[in-house]
């Protein structure tokens, strides 16, 4: 009886969460899968069971190019955010000595997360624009004669914005795992004659792996699912899968958008499944 109670009470307490997820996560996914088999005219969509949307999707070279671009964005952003995020977290965890200071600096890194992404993207315009600060500075230094055209509305701008927006998704989990490393392990490494670099490679990095994995999952999924950063920072000149979907939505081609969405979801889930082999999330919180 006691055991049964535990399950019933547990479900009662988890019910609100389960209801929200059922209504606004599971049901929408099911709906998208269903609609991906529907047909569409220019003005409306109609129920059907046809594979036209998928045939068109897999038959079009655009699809492969756009998926390629999406992976490219994800990979470059991942590499940069990992390098920057790891360095920042390493500094915070092992070089800042007072806990108060650690918390204060950690908050400095996290506060932008609670402000608007759109506005953080807009705020790059005066910096990167044709007559922006970057170009003006480089010209006044004599590095270049003409303004660089590829600063804003380019792959460069897209990746810069991704790194700007998402690095803290690396900093937070990596810092979290680093703070739980037993400091006596570092002492032991040093006492045994390891250099700072050897300690980093053979002690800190292996122990930080779970944090790196969680950060990786965040960054990769955020970048792969993005459509607004690419649209805004490339001035609509570049595409990723998210934009493919949002363009179809704009044209009211919901079935085709849904088919692309299904493929995107599968891709993201496969990537996560691979990453999850390396870490047990629940143990790491």
């Amino acid at each position: 009886m006691q055991l049964k109670n535990r399950h019933i009470l547990g479900w009662l307490e988890a019910a609100p969460l389960a209801m929200v997820l059922l209504g606004f996560l599971i049901a929408p996914i099911v709906m998208i899968v269903i609609v991906s088999f529907w047909g569409a005219t220019e003005f409306s969509i109609y129920p059907a069971f046809e594979f036209d949307n998928y045939e068109f999707l897999f038959g079009s070279p655009v699809t492969y190019r756009v998926f390629g671009a999406t992976f490219k964005y994800a990979f470059i952003t991942w590499a940069l955010t990992l390098a920057i995020g790891f360095t920042v977290a390493y500094f915070l965890a092992f070089h800042v000595r007072s806990l108060t200071m650690q918390i204060a600096l950690f908050l400095v890194c996290t506060i932008p997360f609670w402000t608007s992404n759109i506005i953080r993207m807009i705020s790059w315009i005066p910096f990167l624009g044709r007559n922006g600060i970057a170009n003006q500075t480089l010209i006044s230094w004599g590095v270049i004669d003409e303004p660089l055209e590829w600063l804003l509305y380019s792959d460069f701008a897209v990746i810069l914005a991704f790194v700007h927006l998402y690095t803290l998704f690396m900093v937070v989990p990596i810092f979290n795992t680093m703070m739980r490393i037993d400091k006596s392990l570092l002492e032991a490494a040093r006492d045994n004659g390891a250099s700072g670099f050897q300690t980093l490679v053979h002690v800190i990095i292996p122990l930080t792996k779970p944090g790196i994995m969680i950060g990786t999952i965040f960054v990769v999924t955020l970048v792969m699912g993005d459509f607004i950063t690419v649209r805004f920072m490339s001035g609509s000149q570049r595409a990723n899968v998210g934009r493919l979907i949002s363009n179809d939505i704009g044209l009211l081609q919901y079935p085709s958008a849904a088919a692309t969405a299904v493929v995107l979801l599968c891709t993201v889930l496969i990537v996560i499944a691979i990453l999850l082999r390396f870490v047990n999330i629940r143990k790491e919180l």
Partner: peptide, 24 residues
């Protein structure tokens, strides 16, 4: 199951939620 649903909710591309809820 509920836990993995919550994690899925976190990592699913946002446009899918937007599209799916809109369609429903």
């Amino acid at each position: 199951l509920v836990f993995y649903a919550a994690i899925t909710s976190l990592v699913i591309p946002s446009i899918l939620i937007s599209l799916g809820v809109g369609l429903i």
